[in-house]
Amino acid sequence: MNGILKLVINQLRRGITKQETLVTLPCRAAGGAVAPPADCSVTVEEAVSLWTQHFLQHGVSEPLSSSHYIIAHVLGKKTLESVERRRLRETLTDKERECVWKLCSKRLTRMPVQYVIEEWDFRDLTLKMRPPVFIPRPETEELVSLVLEHLQSEQVMKARGKAAVHCLEIGCGSGAISLSLLHSVPQLKGIALDQSQEAVCLTKENASRLGLQDRLEVRKLDIMKDAALIVRDYGPVDVLVSNPPYLFTEDMASLEAEILKFEDHSALDGGLDGMSVISQILALAPQLLTNEGRLYLEVDPRHPPLLQWLVEEQTEGLHYLGTSCDLTTRPRFCVLQRSG
């Protein structure tokens, strides 16, 4: 990693002189956008180093990978490494150059790369991303692994035979969790709820792009306000899964500009103790789950002990199965089961 960084910095140093002769950068237009160089040729490599440097100067986080991902995207690839090496030394076409300048200018406003290129990968799927719908985090990929492990276990398969298994997701955002589960388990049927109209639309769009729309019902419902309706229409299910807003309100102010300016706060802010939506899910879970149905939650590392206490002391009909850690060994996932 350091090696690459050093190299690029060297490249940048060389690039500075090039930049002055080639492109007049920065020439800022209104709203932080940078006017594209009108009549000069820029190779892919030069564009990458120019924009990396420009991001660096303007305090944009992850300057190198931002320019890599955006430029690779313009060239029709996911990563710069998968672009042919020969191509890197070739000039960008006028159209490509305009596109790079347009997208990189968006990034200058601190818009997350995922929104800039309007897509990102989640496990095996490439999903459409659109502000302000929450961008799935890598930890959630592991949450899906946990649920899949359970759904694909012999026990569940045998119990259901050929009948469909049902799954309900609270707060689906872009649809990452539900769609990944449906993608991997053919006999699964899903219901995805979100209180945001944008999220509902995006999940529907992603579902039909992936051809999973027939097995997924997406509804605009708020677990806080529409609890009775949800219990009436959608229970009981075999698996209840959620990545609810779990940030403590006091932490919201310290978030990076990318998150604070562009992502839906209601998908992040979990109230004073980050538990407001979590408690609501816990309260409804016994009514939403089949007997021995399971609840999978992603939470803040401070939550699991609190959650366990809450379930054991205050919640009837729910049994705390255990806590799982994420890749960085933080307690991140809680698994619960409905009991008698």
Binding site: E62, I135, R137, N243, L247, E258, E298
Partner: peptide, 8 residues
């Protein structure tokens, strides 16, 4: 980590 951070 988690929802606190968005990184590529």
């Amino acid at each position: 980590g988690g929802q606190h951070v968005n990184t590529t």
